[in-house]
């Protein structure tokens, strides 16, 4: 029987670290994806951040929230990556523009919802639609939109929230079906 306190301590340390990993991995990867728009890159980014945290022992030393440090590391890491590699532009031309469909049925529904999104856009108030288009299709950040349209960033945030509400209402008959297709 191994009765070495050092080994015990290490095992406990690793278990604690694994528990931290399991708790936050999905949320952090989801967050990274919102910037990078690529699942593999988002996962690589988050895994590397955890390795760095382990090596630098940051997950134990930090007395402020470890969770907050992890989310901040993902935020900064993604912004640096976008700056360095311009990945947003690259994937906007590949993955987002050319989604892969599992079935003909799914493809048909996605095409249909794409058309409904276009119709829904036409029902949005002018300013709301303009902001939605700049954000969704030109991938401009809120600050960039605010500068472009000479608006406050708060107005941009509010208008996008409004766009979501109105678009959801317009697409209410399509969204549940689409969601079921995606999770199956």
């Amino acid at each position: 029987m191994i009765n070495n306190p050092k080994i015990k301590a290490t095992a406990t340390e690793l278990e604690r670290f694994e528990s931290l990993f399991q708790e936050h991995y999905s949320g952090l990867t989801r967050y990274a994806f919102t910037f990078l728009k690529n699942g593999d890159e988002a996962e690589d980014m988050v895994q590397q951040i955890f390795v760095n945290f382990w090596e630098k022992n940051q997950w134990q030393q930090a007395h402020t929230s470890v969770k907050s440090l992890l989310y901040t590391a993902v935020h900064n890491g993604c912004l640096n990556k976008i700056k360095q590699e311009q990945v947003r532009l690259r994937y906007a031309n590949t993955q987002l523009a050319k989604p892969h469909f599992n079935t003909h049925e799914e493809a048909w529904h996605l095409k249909e919802i794409g058309e409904e999104i276009k119709k829904g856009l036409e029902t949005l108030p002018e300013q709301c639609r303009r902001i939605f288009e700049l954000s969704r299709f030109q991938e401009m950040k809120y600050q960039e939109i605010a500068n472009e349209l000479n608006l406050s960033i708060k107005t941009v945030e509010n208008q996008m929230g409004k766009a979501l509400k109105l678009m959801r209402s317009h697409l209410k008959d399509y969204l549940p079906t689409l969601f079921l297709l995606l999770i199956n």
């Binding site: 919102t34 699942g39 988002a42 987002l96 979501l164 678009m167 959801r168 969204l175």
Partner: peptide
């Protein structure tokens, strides 16, 4: 589905 932003998997 409206905004994009989430991975499919």
């Amino acid at each position: 589905q409206i905004f994009g932003g989430l991975s499919r998997s």
